[in-house]
Amino acid sequence: TMQVEMLEKARELFRLCDKEEKGFITKLDMQRLQSELPLTTEQLEAVFDSLEQDNNGYLTPVEFSMGLGKFIGIEQYQ
């Protein structure tokens, strides 16, 4: 159930980034979040690069939730 909850959360957060509901997030989508989140464009690009696995320019829901999972893992570890 932890994993289901995590996936649900990942999907909701993914939707916040994928405003046009394309099904993926581009670097441009990420850069646009700069107006809503307290992060710089450079930081958002760094987030995109660290979440993206295959360097195809798209961040998929799977890659996104894997990143969130890793983050939650780090949080629990601390």
């Binding site: 959360k9 909701e12 957060l13 916040l16 809503e36 992060l39 930081q43 760094a46 987030v47 990143g67």
Partner: peptide, 29 residues
């Protein structure tokens, strides 16, 4: 080594990103 520096900061940036998104989500109705 710039690549090492990037690795060290990325966790913090990632945490900042997800925390911001999470608080944004909970903040909206």
């Amino acid at each position: 080594d710039p690549s090492m520096k990037a690795g060290a900061t990325s966790e913090g940036v990632l945490a900042n990103f997800f925390n911001s998104l999470l608080s944004k989500k909970t903040g909206s109705p």
